[in-house]
Simulated scan of single mutants.
Amino acid sequence: MNAAHWRGKRVLVTGGAGFLGSGLCHALGAMGAEVLALDAMLDGSGAHPGNLDGSGATLVTADLRDADLAPHTRDMDAVFNMAGQTSHAGSMADPFADLDINATAQLRLIAALRDGSPDAVLVHASTRQFYGTPRYLPVDEAHPLAPPDPNGVSKLAGEQYWMLEHRTRNRRVTSLRLTNCFGPRLRVRDARQTFLGIWLRRLLEGQPFEVWGGAQLRDLAYLDDVVEAFLLAAETPSCAGSVFNLGGAPPVSLLALAEAAVAANGGGRFLFKEFPAERAAIDIGSYHADDTAFRAATGWAPKVSLEDGLRRSLDWFRPRLEAYL
């Protein structure tokens, strides 16, 4: 990534007080960008008031669903669209709210940016969830789409609204379909953002965490690598109009991941459990991404190993855990 590219740029980060959004705010601020972090600060989301400490970003508390967005979307050079509802169980319980956040709110942001920043580059945070249960591994962008729950459907609608904006308005839009991401400032109160959050919490509390199944494969991406991918996507004009998978470290079984987390913590234990019935119905089994296309387009490759990422995450949370519960 090119630090000089961002110096003096005006950048909007939606979901800016969340896990990935705040990571971008810190990186952009360090490179001299003027960053506006817009976040609804919803209870149950990944937003945390401490996530932006030291970033230099200006936080505006506003909900994309109903706020006046015009004052916050003027004269932007780039937008990182990280806002979204990510809870699978939450989408099953209230699909209407899920649709509002992940689809209707995206249309409101599109309209505001057409008026205020028609030339801003936009990178959209999307999800591997669209593919559902993989028919083959690794999963490339040509894999059939079969979202397993309402969250997958709403997120797919939001992504496609943005790709339509590229096709009809020629805005530079790129969408990155993310695998499981982890690192500092991840939501660890519970498993609403990712199962790994509650694993980290239990390890730091000296309590056992639960592993459901154990044989499923996952590829995990560390925060710093994900942030670099978003910045490269925005910096690379040839990415415009494309949807890319983004993976991370080589795939690992949940059992091996649990053992690696315990080792990174210097101790701990876990329990095997059967999948809860309501989660078994939407579990996709094993997944890992083929992100060859994005690597070829940008030169990106993850730099942080799974083991190092787990150590860094635990070390970051250890003195801060109480503030994040």
Rank of each mutant, 00 (worst) to 15 (best):
L38N: 01
A40G: 09
A40D: 02
A40M: 05
A40T: 04
M41V: 07
M41H: 06
M41W: 10
D43S: 06
G44A: 01
G44D: 00
G44Y: 00
G44N: 02
S45F: 07
S45A: 09
A47Y: 02
A47Q: 03
H48S: 03
H48I: 03
P49C: 06
P49Q: 11
P49M: 10
L52I: 12
L52M: 06
L52T: 02
S55N: 07
S55W: 00
S55G: 12
G56K: 02
G56V: 09
G56F: 07
G56Q: 12
G56S: 09
G56A: 14
A57E: 05
T58P: 06
L59S: 07
V60T: 11
T61D: 15
T61A: 14
A62N: 05
D63P: 03
L64W: 01
R65P: 02
D66W: 13
D66P: 08
A67P: 06
A67N: 08
D68T: 13
D68L: 08
D68W: 11
D68C: 15
L69G: 02
L69D: 07
A70K: 10
A70S: 11
A70Q: 15
A70C: 07
P71V: 11
P71G: 14
H72E: 11
H72K: 05
H72Y: 10
H72L: 08
T73S: 14
T73V: 13
T73I: 10
R74I: 09
R74D: 11
D75V: 12
D75A: 15
M76N: 02
M76E: 05
M76A: 11
D77N: 13
D77Y: 06
A78V: 05
A78H: 05
V79G: 01
V79L: 15
V79Q: 08
F80R: 01
F80K: 03
F80C: 10
N81Y: 13
N81L: 15
M82N: 03
M82K: 02
M82Y: 06
M82V: 10
A83M: 06
A83G: 07
A83V: 05
A83P: 03
G84D: 04
Q85H: 13
Q85N: 14
Q85E: 08
T86L: 10
S87H: 02
S87C: 07
A89L: 14
A89E: 14
A89Q: 12
G90M: 01
G90E: 00
S91V: 01
S91I: 02
M92V: 11
M92K: 03
A93N: 10
P95R: 09
P95Q: 08
P95V: 05
P95M: 11
F96M: 09
A97G: 11
A97H: 06
D98Y: 07
L99C: 12
L99D: 04
I101W: 00
I101F: 01
I101Q: 01
I101T: 13
N102E: 06
N102P: 07
N102D: 12
A103K: 04
A103G: 08
T104D: 11
T104W: 04
A105S: 15
A105E: 00
A105I: 02
A105M: 04
Q106D: 05
Q106L: 03
L107I: 14
L107P: 07
R108G: 08
R108H: 15
L109R: 03
L109W: 03
A111E: 15
A111F: 12
A111L: 15
A111I: 13
A112M: 10
A112R: 00
A112F: 12
L113R: 03
L113S: 06
R114H: 10
D115V: 15
G116C: 09
G116W: 04
V121E: 05
V121T: 14
